[in-house]
Each structure stands twice: as structure tokens, then as C-alpha cells.
Amino acid sequence: MERREVSFRIQRYNPQVDQTPFYDNFKIAVEKGITILRVLNHIKEQLEPRLTFRAFCQAGICGSCAVRVNGISKLACTTQVWDELTGGGDDPILIEPLSNLPVIRDLLVDIDPVIEKLRQNQGWVVPSIPEEKMGFKEHAVSDDEFEVINAATDCILCGSCYSECSMMGVNPRYISPPVLLKTFRMNNDTRDTDGDERLRRVTADHGLWDCTHCYRCVEHCTKNIPIMDGIHRLREEAFERGMTGSEGARHAQAFFDDTRNTGRLREVTLPLRTKGVTGSFGMLPLALKMALKGRTPPLFVHRIAGIERIREIYRKLEK
């Protein structure tokens, strides 16, 4: 059995006592195949009983043990020490709490902000069967119907995507990837009847259209859920349901229109079309400075060669 000494650098923090977070180092002999969670358990049982973290199922199902390992959010129970060794195995493995959530102590974060956002955005099925008739009549979901939301139902609310999200990092009020995923999942559940209202809520400020599509949520989802596909689908749904008044929707519409008109994006009027006249007023100083450097987009873009072909495609698709 392969075995080696590995250093672990673990963030410690008790907000009631400590001014700022600090790090403790532990050097432990570890066998190949050992997970980060077993290391944390070992440290708690043998070396530092005050080390605080959350864990339960030890099998990647309950989602409670997510931490950042070497800067990336992961489940401690499914992450092997050997896969995290860098610098020829000599660098310490850094273990920190999830980002974008309040730290209760050490590696333990408060997940309540996520739960509260789910509550505000109706993250549950609103069925067509009235409450009093519940339990008397089956509402079956076929395999094909379930397939649409199959991957999304794998979400274990571990909080990794919440921790990795670029927008969450700069706006705590942002709706967040797990809530958008849950919205997609509920809106595509054939038993649900409240898609309109749910989508109206998530397209409000700090909502659906604020996603920067940085794909960090997808990249680091512990259950490999294509979260961005769900977000894409919700944006499509906003158009299908005619919820096109938001800046984000107007922005998307501009790309659609320009491709038909010239085949090129007309960037010069993009702020105006996205934000409206008053909204884009604040951009004038930057536009002037860019003009001095010759960086302003041209007033009129050229039509691509054979634009008629593109328009033909549009006409055919609109039929």
C-alpha cells in the first residue's frame, strides 16, 4: 500500500473569539485512497478535537461536507488526498470553508441563505391537484417527461456552485446557481402549475439575467449537473412566456435582430437597446474617452457577404 506524509493547511475561525481566520498545519501519514473527510475525522479524533466541520453520509449523497480543497469547492467525502497532491506531494493541501456563505466555525458554513432564496423563489412543485384531494389521485410522470429534469434532480444542495459562482462573489443578493437550477427543475415538472409566477420572480433584479455565464458552477458541480443548460432553458422560457421587458432580455433580442439585419452585432447602439435612453446616459463619458482612442464601434456596421442567405434562414425559421 502506497503511504506518505502529507501536510494539511486548514482554515480555523471562531467568529465569537477570533478577529480574523487563521491556519493550522497538520502533518499526517496517509495511505493512497484516503479521502479528505477521513483526514478531517482523523484530525478531530486524534489531534484537534475542536476542529469543526459538517459531514454525514460519507458517500457523496447528503451534500453536507462540501469544503474548498486547494481553492476549489468539493465534497470532502469523495475527494481523495492523492488527487490533490501538488508540488511532487510536498505542498500542503489547503482546506477552507465554502466561499460566499457566513462561517459559523472553522469549515462549517451557514447554508440558510441558500434555503431562504429557495423559499422566496418557490423551489417546490405547485400541483394541479387541490390540497384536499392530495393522496387520492396519482399524478404519474412518464420516463420521457422525467428525463428533461433527471440531471437537475441530482442536486444535493451541497453549496459548491454557490461558493464558486462569480456573481455571488460580488453580490450576496444574487439569486445563485442552485436556486436557478431548482427553478428550471420545477418549471419543467409536468405536475407543476406555477411556472409563470416562479419565472416572474426569478427574472426580477439580481435574478436570472445577472448570470455572467462563467461556467464555474457547471465546472465544479459535485454531481456533474449541467447547471448552465438549466439557466439557458430558463432564459429561453422567459422569451416563450413573453417576459422580455428586462435589460437582459432586451440585450439578447439585440443579438437576434442584428444577425438578421447585417450579420454583425451593432455594438454602438447595444447599450441604448439594452438599458434605454436614461440607462445608457451614464456611459457617455466612457464612450467619449474611447472615441479619443479610436475605440468607438462604427456607427454603421458592414453587411456580411451574402446577408440575403441569413435573412432567408430567418424567414424559413419564422414560418
Binding site: 455565464h213 439557458h232 432564459r235 429561453e236 422567459a238 422569451f239 432580455a249 440585450h251 439578447a252 433580442q253 439585440a254 443579438f255 437576434f256 442584428d258 444577425t259 450579420g263 454583425r264 452585432l265 456580411i304 457577404a305 451574402g306 442567405r309 441569413i310
Partner: peptide
């Protein structure tokens, strides 16, 4: 003859 890719916006519409 290539057209704007849609800047990951076209597909929403």
C-alpha cells in the same frame, strides 16, 4: 460570409 455567433445570447431568443 460568416455571421455573428450570437455572443451566447442568440439562443435565448
Amino acid at each position: 460570409k460568416g455571421a455573428c455567433c450570437g455572443g451566447s445570447n442568440l439562443d435565448y431568443v
